[in-house]
Amino acid sequence: MENSKNTSDNMKTSLLVGSLIFLITALAEIILGAIKIYTDSKELEEHWVNAIPFPPGIFPGLAVLLIGLIWLVGYFVTRKGQNANGYLSVGTVIALGFILLFILILLTDIFNAYALGLEDYEDWTILASLRWIIFLSPIPIFFIMKYREVIFTRKKKTIVLQS
């Protein structure tokens, strides 16, 4: 009983902390991404956008935002004493899915630039493909390790059928 309460408290804290980090990062990425695309202000670009070597983007930022929101809703669900396992699982799986996606994009960019030597990649550097969400990967990885039982299915049983 005590154990279960501790797990629930831990999950509540994890969901809150994880969601806040993702939400703050997402807002920063979306704002900087919008500045990069929609303003001509050199000053803003130099001082804000270029200050961080990893390119911000609106859509990648929205992905981070949504993951943060899923965990945040999960946090409020746990506060009501309800089961938030689904929120933890879905948020974590989507987060890991997008981290793997952006790592894959990074790898294909490296291949395109160095193995194929494509023209489009003449000025490309690895930093240009390092998406913000990649740096947030410790959070979903921590969730996977800590709440493995919740996120993954239990051991499969062998089923014997008899007619």
Partner: peptide
């Protein structure tokens, strides 16, 4: 059921 609560959520 638990996953559906999230992926079929009214807002999410």
């Amino acid at each position: 059921d638990l996953i559906d609560k999230v992926v079929t959520h009214k807002w999410l």
